[in-house]
Computed example of a mutant assay.
Amino acid sequence: MKIVVLEGSPNRHASSNLLAEEFIRGAKEAGHTAEIIDAAHADLHPCTGCVRCGYEGPCVQKDDMEKFRGQILDADMMVFVTPLYYYGMSAQLKMLVDRFCAINSSITRKHMKSALLAAAWNADSWTFEALEAHYRTLVRYLQMDDQGMVLGKGCGTPSMTAHSRYPQLAYELGRSLT
């Protein structure tokens, strides 16, 4: 299976990226390929809602989304990776997701698999409720098959994350893919 990992952390060595690395390690051990799209450091512009793409592209904006379109549509699975920012995904990842407007139909037709990896300082029981709801709505709308989530509570720094159970859970999720 070909996996595209959509990273949304503005910090290149962040806790969420550590979870992505472990997920990828597990997925590769299971025989899959994976490539990363670094949304936080890409030349991406927000969707303007002009709908000139007709929900199938091309987008009128000329930026890295042209390259990402091919990577996403060549994949069998998308993994959304984000730090928790104000109880949702990072703005950088959200900008990439919003740009799906120009490839909605193609994503939907593929019935791709998906997963969510996230990390947060907060460890309250309700910490990820809004992010989970948004992710589940996105997966439903795009007709994706949810393979699971690793939601790292109390993972404020890479050191905290590395010493938690969450990297192992991300590895196991990647390793379990069929």
Score class of each variant (00 low, 15 high):
11 N>H: 14
129 E>W: 01
78 M>Q: 12
150 V>N: 05
67 K>H: 08
71 Q>H: 07
44 L>P: 04
12 R>P: 10
91 A>P: 14
100 F>G: 09
98 D>A: 11
95 M>L: 12
175 R>L: 09
134 H>N: 07
42 A>R: 04
75 A>M: 05
10 P>Y: 11
178 T>K: 14
130 A>D: 02
110 K>Y: 10
110 K>P: 09
17 N>S: 13
134 H>L: 11
29 E>Y: 04
56 E>L: 10
153 K>I: 08
77 M>W: 00
55 Y>V: 09
178 T>C: 11
50 C>N: 11
103 I>M: 14
45 H>D: 07
109 R>K: 15
87 Y>W: 14
10 P>M: 12
136 R>F: 04
56 E>F: 05
173 L>S: 08
37 I>V: 15
91 A>G: 15
53 C>G: 13
52 R>C: 10
98 D>H: 09
41 H>M: 12
147 Q>Y: 06
122 N>T: 04
68 F>N: 05
25 R>G: 02
126 W>A: 06
173 L>H: 05
173 L>I: 04
169 L>D: 13
51 V>Q: 10
131 L>N: 03
13 H>Y: 10
84 L>E: 00
62 K>V: 12
158 P>L: 07
116 L>A: 02
32 H>Y: 00
1 M>V: 01
172 E>G: 01
108 T>A: 15
178 T>E: 12
122 N>L: 02
55 Y>L: 15
85 Y>K: 06
139 V>G: 01
157 T>W: 07
60 V>D: 14
78 M>W: 09
116 L>C: 01
121 W>P: 03
96 L>A: 08
10 P>S: 08
39 A>R: 08
5 V>S: 04
75 A>P: 11
68 F>P: 07
91 A>W: 10
75 A>G: 08
58 P>K: 12
159 S>E: 15
132 E>K: 00
53 C>V: 14
57 G>D: 11
142 L>I: 02
12 R>T: 13
30 A>F: 01
162 A>N: 08
152 G>V: 13
20 A>V: 06
133 A>F: 00
87 Y>V: 12
9 S>N: 02
118 A>K: 00
161 T>N: 02
127 T>I: 09
24 I>W: 00
92 Q>S: 14
160 M>I: 14
156 G>N: 03
76 D>S: 06
103 I>V: 14
43 D>G: 05
77 M>N: 08
13 H>K: 15
151 L>Q: 01
149 M>E: 05
159 S>P: 01
47 C>E: 05
170 A>M: 08
67 K>R: 12
45 H>F: 13
98 D>T: 06
74 D>T: 07
103 I>T: 02
146 D>H: 06
90 S>V: 05
102 A>V: 10
127 T>C: 11
156 G>W: 03
9 S>G: 02
11 N>L: 08
171 Y>N: 03
30 A>T: 05
65 M>R: 10
66 E>Y: 06
9 S>K: 00
157 T>N: 11
46 P>K: 09
21 E>M: 10
73 L>H: 09
29 E>D: 12
148 G>K: 04
60 V>K: 13
166 Y>P: 05
51 V>F: 14
157 T>D: 04
111 H>F: 01
30 A>W: 01
55 Y>W: 12
158 P>G: 02
27 A>N: 00
139 V>L: 02
115 A>N: 00
109 R>I: 04
139 V>Y: 01
82 T>H: 09
25 R>K: 15
84 L>C: 13
